[in-house]
């Protein structure tokens, strides 16, 4: 199972094994990782699962589509590596992925 490391804004690390086919958001919610709220349940409609993808992984996570980019633009404190974690599907390619949390969700 791919390993994903979620890092809270205060630096606390949560290494988790997440099944292929789930999203990075679901991996956090199912494991009660704090800092990802996912209010809309993965519909790309709220921007409360915002993460910063570790720059080394950007090539493998891909880039936001139009709807995600639109929702992300309303999130607080976005960076060029900002993503909504409900829009990143876990694949074997993402084994080792590192994502960091923002100071607060929208």
């Amino acid at each position: 199972m791919p390993k994903i490391t979620y890092i809270e804004h205060d630096g606390t690390e949560h290494p988790m094994e997440v099944p292929v086919g789930l999203t990075v958001m679901q991996g956090a919610v199912d494991n009660s990782v704090p800092g990802i709220d996912a209010d809309c349940g993965g519909a790309c409609a709220c921007a409360t699962c915002h993460v910063y993808v570790d720059p080394e992984w950007l090539g493998k996570t891909g880039t936001p589509n139009e709807q995600e980019a639109s929702m992300l633009s309303f999130a607080a404190v976005t960076e060029s590596n900002s993503r909504l974690s409900c829009q990143i599907e876990v694949t074997s390619e993402l084994d080792g992925l590192i994502v960091r949390m923002p100071e607060g969700q929208h």
Binding site: D37, D39, G41, A45, C46, M71, F74, G104, H106
Partner: peptide
Amino acid sequence: PRQHLSFGFGIHRCVGNR
């Protein structure tokens, strides 16, 4: 408990929800 519609969803989601 956060799964509710009170703040709306999409681009018009409540600005001041937090």
